[in-house]
Amino acid sequence: MMSLMTQKTIPAKQPLSDWFRRNVAKLVVAPTFGLIIFFVYGFIAWTGYVSFTKSKMLPTYSFEGFYQYIRLWKMTPWNVAMENLLVFGSLFILIAIVLGCLLAIALDQKVRAEGVLRTVYLYPMAISFIITGTAWKWILNPGLGIQSLMQSWGWESFAFDWLINSEMAVYTLVIAAVWQSSGFVMALFLAALRGVDSEIIKAAYLDGASLSRIYLVIILPTLRPVFLSCFFILTHMAVKSFDLVVALTGGGPGYSTIMPANFMYEMTFRRNQIGLGAASAMMMLATVMAIVIPYLYSELREKKNG
């Protein structure tokens, strides 16, 4: 009844411009929406389909079930890549968050040169992973970097050869990635710490809590959303890390430091195994999904309750 009444009151003149005014928001969003549907979700679907075929150099479209996935999980390099992702990912995320958080707390203590320090810590984020990788390759190179420097200063027995040690090389990735990202994590935490009401800290002081207690029990729990944001940003960086490996270790020694993304690139574009590459890409997507979906679920549920 109501809708009938309102329809009557709208004059029938200029129907086109009326339609335009009502739909202007949709029109503005439509091109990007279309592009995302095609290039992101369309290609995900295509990759998903190809992963179920025996595609080699060129895609074929005859359905072959889980053939490529079974092949994939039988390959040692893929298992090494997944192990590396687990080690690298967990260490990188943990260390970057802890370090970034500590840096932010330190800078929040009304440090005099805060502006300068903040920029210093944040700058690595402005550099691409290729540069980071190359720079750290030189720093960690036993013949050029820290080891040779320490030895030239007279500490002859000093050894720091992780980069060429197939057991330890994956940790050099962690060092470089933490160096690059912890400043960014710091910036996120610092912004959140600035939003904490200073009267809360005063009140906790009067209540007799020590500074470490104030941060641990009162302030950090309120920063839960920041922890989550950092966790998800760093997770996706870890899963898709490709350029850092290329620049720092080249996947070596041997294939001891390859990551799933490197594996995928190698199979798809170098060894003419499109089907296998697609299957590894789908496994990476599944890894991200496994982390993001529970998060989205809990967030949306919270909103419904709140």
Binding site: K202, A204, P221, T222
Partner: peptide
């Protein structure tokens, strides 16, 4: 002390 913003611990 009672503060203007109440300064309750939010968590």
């Amino acid at each position: 002390m009672v503060f203007q913003s109440y300064a309750l611990y939010p968590n």
